[in-house]
Design a protein around this nucleic acid. Structure first.
Lengths: 192, 192
DNA sequence: GCTCATAAAGCAAATATTTTGCGTTTGTGT
DNA sequence: ACACAAACGCAAAATATTTGCTTTATGAGC
């Protein structure tokens, strides 16, 4: 059961995929995760269960597929004029999103997927986002750490706390991660 | 289906729990995750499937329960004489463990669990371990960052990379995380 | 030690789900 | 337009899960 992306993008396949995704989203809004079932989704989407099983394999992969979509950044990150501000603004809204009930659920669903490709996609969203903020900072003439320093210093602690120690995933701590990352990279740069 | 810990620790319950865990471990060694089933485990453990369903709810929770066990640190971390060395030694063996096939599977199984208590338990293992290394360093008269700095600086990036970007979970990067964490905390301390 | 109340397990019937084989529909390339 | 194959629908078969009831065995109180 290989996970295919956009198989036969035109026509029926696409329609089915959209109908199923839509059905999942609608049902997720009114149903607890434990009594969400494939047959139920199939009926709502006007599709046979076997279609879902053939295409996604099982419920976990299906909901992961839907949730990873939800993670895709919708708009460009706001420009506050400084890298610190941009990181803080982005982080705050990300934290808010991910500590909300549906956000937590989406995060869990993605983590529950057996194939790592889903998580890698989330990673690439963050990577690309950090890259945007960094380029923006450089264009302003600001100093900016490398993308991997930003990920290790800001994204990783934030994600780690969201997953393992939710109560530490706070705006206050975010401020600390950002400050430490920037000053440490700055200090280190002058050393070299 | 509340997750209970050590219900009626003595006697039959304990025996059943152990038999089931054992069955899961044995089957995991020879079976791919996708064709591991509850009835199969039940048979091997000499137990009725309904017993497993009543106690763990479903397969995902059961394997998560087994895997979180596997994560519990078995021995005290080695003492290399310096905090840097201790962190590096611990990190290297942890990385090795978690990049192995069974390690990856255990990590996934824990992440797939719906209840966050499992992940919190892993968190507490790391927290306690970092605390041990820190106290050890202080006893030597070394400087040592706080536990949460160690977690944010070393554990979080490592875990993040293991989950989201496996190829960056390397011993080389580990060295960098450790160095940055120690020097940044040290520098920051002198500032205050 | 013995008894009692009860949590947990066993058993089997009832449900619900997942899988599979096969025929049909429908995009896609020529 | 035609042919090919991927994807879907349908329904039967195979599995897995839930549930009601019975039985067993632990732990508490005497």
């Amino acid at each position: 059961m290989p996970i295919k992306e956009a198989v036969r993008p035109g026509g029926r396949s696409a329609r089915v995929q959209e109908a199923v995704h839509q059905a999942v989203r609608e049902l997720q809004a009114v149903t607890s995760r434990d009594d969400l079932t494939v047959p139920q989704i199939a009926e709502r989407a006007g599709v046979t269960p076997s279609t879902i099983y053939r295409r996604w394999g099982n419920l976990a992969e299906l909901v992961a597929d839907v949730s990873v979509e939800r993670m895709r950044p919708d708009a460009d990150p706001v420009d506050t004029g400084t890298l610190t501000g941009d990181l803080q603004a982005w982080g705050e809204q990300y934290l808010e999103e991910m500590t909300s009930v549906p956000g937590q659920r989406a995060l869990n669903d993605v983590m529950a997927s057996a194939d790592c490709e889903r998580r890698e996609r989330c990673y690439r969203y963050s990577e690309s986002l950090m890259n945007t903020l960094r380029e923006r900072a450089l264009a302003r003439g600001e100093f900016a750490p490398s993308v991997s320093q930003l990920i290790d210093g800001v994204v990783a602690p934030m994600t780690y706390r969201l997953l393992y120690d939710r109560e530490s995933a706070t705006v206050d701590n975010l401020r600390g991660w950002i400050a430490r990352t920037l000053s440490s990279a700055h200090f280190r740069q002058r050393q070299d």
